[in-house]
């Protein structure tokens, strides 16, 4: 801070004294310019780093500098990956995790948006509901996971419910924020045109809240995936989360890496699809 302040204060005194004596020539300073690399160079450096990490890891493992029992090594992971997809349950697991994530995401986001919108109808109802929502918001929902598994069983349903619990609150709060941000003059305009409450809701409140609802989609897809994986950790017969947990407890570290890698790929794909959906919706609603 002090270093940054120093030149400024000299400049100030310099200015103040300017009329008194001839100004000492200020050093000409140019605007710092950062030159952008071409995109191929960026990509090349990125690939180089990745190759470096993998090669270094492999070399370190072979030289015995890294314990391959705990850390595994790229060559072993690659073999396990091939086996996982050719002989293992890869597609069953991916399908299971994917379904619980998507279902939890859809139900959670829809229910949350509807609850958030419903608060527009009655200030009293919203005031009554407020503390409950804040409680549920601040509670770590994952702590409920064992209970949810107990109630909803080992199958898909319990994973969907955990993903739902994680996403519903975020959607509710964000949509409610959208409702609260409505311009009261907009409602005034509608009422001055003789609108009913239902018309105000359909033609003003709902479209105004769409951008708010869209803004949580990306957050929610990540949360839904977390919920599904944690559900699978606790108890499940399928799923990538279950594979990670199982492989870890039997010291098959290369399978842990394979499952984590597949899971990340799945996450990136879902994230990309949701981002694309968000763009389409934004254009469609002119927000």
């Amino acid at each position: 801070m002090a270093i940054q302040d120093a030149p400024r204060s000299t400049e100030l005194t310099g200015l103040a004294m300017a009329p008194a004596k001839a100004a000492t020539p200020k050093p000409a300073r140019r605007l710092p310019v950062q030159k952008d690399w071409p995109s191929w160079a960026i990509i090349a450096v990125q690939v180089l780093i990745l190759v470096g990490i993998i090669a270094g890891w492999e070399a370190a493992a072979r030289a015995g500098m890294v314990d391959a029992f705990f850390w595994s090594q790229p060559s072993a992971i690659w073999k396990t990956l091939i086996i996982f997809f050719t002989e293992g349950d890869a597609w069953v697991d991916i399908g299971f995790t994917f379904r619980s994530t998507i279902l939890g995401f859809i139900f959670g986001t829809t229910a949350g948006s509807l609850i958030g919108l419903s608060f527009w109808w009655s200030r009293n109802y919203a005031a009554v509901a407020q503390p409950y929502i804040i409680c549920f918001e601040s509670m770590p929902k994952l702590a409920l996971a064992p209970l949810i598994i107990l109630v909803f069983g080992l199958g898909l349903t319990s994973k969907v419910v955990i993903a739902f619990a994680l996403t519903v609150v975020v959607s509710t709060l964000t949509t409610f924020a959208g409702v609260k941000a409505l311009d009261p003059d907009g409602e005034k305009l509608f009422y001055s045109l003789g609108a009913s409450r239902w018309q105000v809701f359909r033609k003003l409140v709902m479209p105004s809240c769409v951008p708010w609802i869209i803004s949580v989609l990306r957050v929610n897809i990540g949360l839904a995936l977390t919920g599904a994986i944690v559900g699978e950790f606790i108890s499940s017969q399928h799923g990538l989360g279950r594979t990670i947990f199982y492989a870890g407890s039997t010291y098959e570290i290369s399978l842990v890496w394979v499952a984590v890698f597949v899971l990340s790929t799945l996450a990136v794909i879902m994230y990309a699809v949701v981002s694309w959906l968000e763009n389409v919706l934004r254009k469609g609603t002119r927000q």
């Binding site: 311009d183 907009g186 003789g194």
Partner: peptide
């Protein structure tokens, strides 16, 4: 009673969508 007169507020309040 609402809807009896046309009322234009200070803001244009055009719906962006």
């Amino acid at each position: 009673t609402i809807g009896r007169v046309g009322y234009m507020l200070q803001k244009d309040l055009l719906l962006p969508w």
